[in-house]
């Protein structure tokens, strides 16, 4: 059977892989992708715990956790839209996607 632990560990590992990816690459688009992975990991945890609540209680108990996951998705969509727009704009103006080159504001 799938244990709660398995699902949680999968979530943590996915988060870690995403985090490592976001840290190691300098490509802004790729960083955005890795952040999406991390958000997915968070959703996985939400759903796992919701499931736990549902198994030990009523089916209704799973709902709040899943609703939270829905909100995370909404924010993720908004974030990607704005993030990509910003990156596109930077690329157009400066011809660079690597964030170590985007440092005009560095004092």
């Amino acid at each position: 059977m799938i244990d709660l632990h398995h699902a949680i560990v999968l979530g943590v590992l996915l988060f870690a892989v995403g985090l490592y990816g976001a840290l190691r690459t300098t490509n802004a688009v790729r960083i955005l992708m890795c952040i999406e992975l991390m958000l997915n990991a968070v959703n996985l945890n939400f759903v796992s715990f919701a499931r736990l609540a549902a198994v030990s209680g009523t089916a209704q108990a799973a709902v709040p956790g899943q609703v939270f996951a829905i909100f995370v998705m909404t924010v993720a969509a908004a974030e990607v839209a704005v993030g990509l727009a910003i990156i596109l704009q930077i690329v157009r103006q400066r011809g660079v996607v690597h964030i170590d080159r985007i440092n005009l504001l560095k004092g």
Binding site: L14, N43, M73, A76, A77, V80
Partner: peptide, 29 residues
């Protein structure tokens, strides 16, 4: 992840995941 959602009994969310992430976000990228 959508598949795992199905296994965890979150069928609506799995659908949403496919629609939003695969259908919208990935396509946007």
């Amino acid at each position: 992840v959508a598949g795992v959602f199905v296994l965890l009994g979150a069928d609506f969310l799995a659908g949403g995941q496919v629609l939003v992430y695969v259908g919208a976000i990935a396509v946007m990228f």
